[in-house]
Design a protein around this nucleic acid. Structure first.
Lengths: 242, 242
DNA sequence: CAAAAACGAGAGCACCGCTCTTGCATTGGA
DNA sequence: TCCAATGCAAGAGCGGTGCTCTCGTTTTTG
């Protein structure tokens, strides 16, 4: 009968989910390096070899967790962005960045899994790309809207970067000027520098009150992509205008 | 006799160095996760348990490698800086940043060891601090010289960051204004965001021609800390002045 | 010169990822 | 409806890991 086929399939889905859940538990508790297939199987009351029916190797299980982590981070950023979707570009930019930091602090091991050093010999499979792009797409969208609405400040590119900048723009956001796309990609990487340094202890004994520090740094990243501060008198100025 | 005591001590130093060399070899070849004490011992023709006379645990060996890596990176940056020590602040800033990237690309696994996700459950021992600070001290020195010479551009701090900024300045560079110290620390983290994204594959299919991209991003970091472009007419302008 | 410390070697423990075989349950086609 | 094919759990086993402990031997020290 139709449910008969569904029985196996449903069971498979459930067991797969249970494995991922338990693996995620261990990942959150101990980190990726201590995630053990045998321990997962033990905790689920099955024998370790049975687990290989669901994930052909430890790396495959990790890949599944990586995709879930990207989606979790992307979802958190999208939710935060949705709450301020009607606000100005700076508020939206800040919301996405702050949400990314928040998620990283709440899920340190999962963050390390996706943005820390890749597991040696491990190369991210193609199927992670869509999930991995969600935060970036959000930031591109914010800048695109600002650009269409009022335009954004631009910093001229050196001659040696213009060709590559055009190529990047054509790939990522053909409707945005190359200068802006370059600034966006750089800010994107720099954002994760800020988050990673806090998360991985590089700020220990250097930055103590990290939330305002991060918010300020993110504001300055917003300048860098051309989202300007409103001047005290209400006149929009260039970024970092002295 | 005096050499008798020295015989053991010298042998110990040599064996310790040999262990670290072989470990570094394996680290560079396969990454930290695949660094195996047994493999190191095997390669050195000793039994694995003997290795514990020199390093009480795998983590201790890794810590030694981390310190060496920090020193190697710091030394590379200092050499690069020394070659342009007489040049202007921007040249010096760029030289340090470019050298850090170069070192990272040349020693990816060692870079991952020190700036990637920390080994789970591993906290950097206090003795790593001096070696880890060398690049940062270099950057502080560049900005300090520029500040003493001609001053640097400043970006005002939000109210909520002023106290922490003063504390940071007092710790890191009491002679520099808090705004500048904040920008310095942020740029420092952002620099490693740029390097890490390139190294860990986040720029795959996004940035292809990475050298000019990096140089441009680093120039903009220089602005952020107040090292301004000379304007076409020779008048120094504010950073990112439109 | 004797006691103490350092050292190398070996056996062994508990764990790991992964493979292979065996037997049972479910499933889908004749 | 029955049967062959498939899916699956279980167990044993291989080669590897970090680490501990013991046991002689060598070197250093008082």
């Amino acid at each position: 009968m139709s449910t008969a086929r569904g029985a196996r399939a449903r069971a498979r889905i459930e067991v797969t989910a249970a494995i991922k859940d338990e693996a995620r538990r261990q990942l959150a508790a101990e980190g990726a390096a201590k995630l053990s297939l045998r321990a997962v199987a033990r905790e689920l009351g099955m024998v370790s070899s049975a687990l290989y029916r669901y994930f052909p190797s430890r790396d495959d299980l990790l890949t599944a967790l990586i995709i879930d982590a990207y989606d979790s981070l992307g979802g958190a950023a999208e939710s935060a962005h949705a709450e301020v979707a009607a606000a100005g570009p700076r508020e939206r930019w800040n919301a996405v960045c702050v949400a990314a930091r928040r998620w990283a602090l709440d899920h340190p091991h999962e963050y390390a899994l996706i943005y820390g050093s890749p597991v040696p010999g491990y190369v991210a499979p193609q199927e992670t790309v869509p999930s991995a792009s969600r935060v970036g797409l959000l930031l591109i969208g914010v800048v695109r809207d600002a650009y269409r609405d009022k335009g954004v400040a631009r910093t001229p590119l050196p001659a040696g970067l213009k060709t590559e900048a055009r190529r990047m723009a054509a790939d990522l956001a053909p409707d945005l000027p190359p200068e802006v796309v370059v600034a966006l990609v750089a800010s994107w990487a720099q954002l994760y520098g800020l988050i990673g340094f806090e998360l991985f202890g590089q700020f220990n004994r250097v930055v103590e009150d990290r939330e305002p520090f991060f918010r300020h740094a993110v504001e300055r990243l917003a300048h860098d992509v051309g989202l300007v501060y409103p001047e005290p008198d209400g006149t929009p100025g260039g970024p970092h205008s002295a």
